[in-house]
Structures are given as structure tokens and as C-alpha cells.
Amino acid sequence: MLELNVSTLVFFIFAVLSIGGALGVVISRNLIHGALFLIVSLFGGAGLFVLLAAPFMAAVQVLVYIGAIAILIIFAVMLTRSMTNIREIFNRQWWISAVAAVILLAVLVVGVVLPIWGPNGTQSEMVLSETTATVQDLGVALVDGNQYVLPFEVASLLLTAAMVGAIVIARDNE
């Protein structure tokens, strides 16, 4: 079923990056390390986007997520510096949280994903279509009055509000 070719290999590499990076974020004591692991995970995600024929998304992931957000996080770590290395990194409920996360994963995978889309699932026969939409189509969709212009405008409002809010919250009170 699974052909062993280049795309599969690439997939596995980026999958490992994603998951491994994620683990690293959650486990690292040093928050700078955590931020760097986050960058790794995001990078893995970008790779997976490329494999999923959404190159624009990958670019946005790198530019926005890694370039802006991850950097922002590093700034925040810097600004809250004195607290990073001293104490416990996990709180009192880490055990239960682990259990919850594992069970959640189990349920999701075994209960939802595999029965439907797994090899023996109900919709296992997925014919992968060759023709996909392009970036132009995305651009048109975002401004087309019949499509997604409204969410687009709302999103921009959201960004404006978030920007203003962040400035207001984070600034020094004289």
C-alpha cells in the first residue's frame, strides 16, 4: 500500500520534525530551547503543507508563524527572563494531563481516524485527484464577493483589534 518512494520519505522526515519539535517544546526546561523547538515543529508543518500541494500556506507558515510569532515568543521570553530556569516546569496535574492527552490521542486515532479513513475503514478508498487549486484561486477566493471576502474583512478587523489591544495591554503605564 505504501510505496516507498521519495514523497513518502519526505513525508516521514517532516512528520518526525513536527512531532519531535512538538515534544521538545513541551518538555524543554529552557524556554529559548522551547521556542527553537517550536520553530522546528512549525518548519515540519510547513514541509507537510508543501507535500499537500499548498505552497502558499507553507510560505505563510514560515513567514508569519516562524518569522513573526515565534520571534514574538522569544521576545516575550526575554522580557520575562528572570523566571525561566528556576523551578519545576510541570505543575501538579501533569500526570492526569498526560493521561488525558494519551487517551485523547488514542480515542482520536483509534476511534475516529482509523475506522473511517484507515486502511480498513469505511472511506479507505481515497482517490487522490491530480488537479488542485492554485494560489491564484486562493487570491480570488479571498476577495470574491460570492466567496470569502467577508471573513477576509473580518479577519483584518480582528488583526487591527488585536494589534491595538496588544499595544494597549503591554505598554507601560505612566
Binding site: 514523497s7 522551547g34 507535500l51 496535574q93 482520536l108 486502511p119
Partner: peptide, 29 residues
């Protein structure tokens, strides 16, 4: 790669994220 593998990866990253939200003490983390 079959769809379900992508879904499993996404689920794994999601659940790790859940664990991190619930268990980390530092707000930035």
C-alpha cells in the same frame, strides 16, 4: 501517503499541544 497518516500526525501534534497547555507552569510555554 494515505490520508490517515496526515491525520495521525496532526492528532499527535495536537495532543502534545494539549499536554503542554495542561501541564506547563510557564505562561509563555
Amino acid at each position: 501517503v494515505p490520508l490517515w497518516m496526515y491525520l495521525v500526525v496532526s492528532a499527535a501534534v495536537f495532543c502534545i499541544g494539549v499536554y503542554g497547555v495542561l501541564a506547563r507552569r510557564n505562561a509563555v510555554a
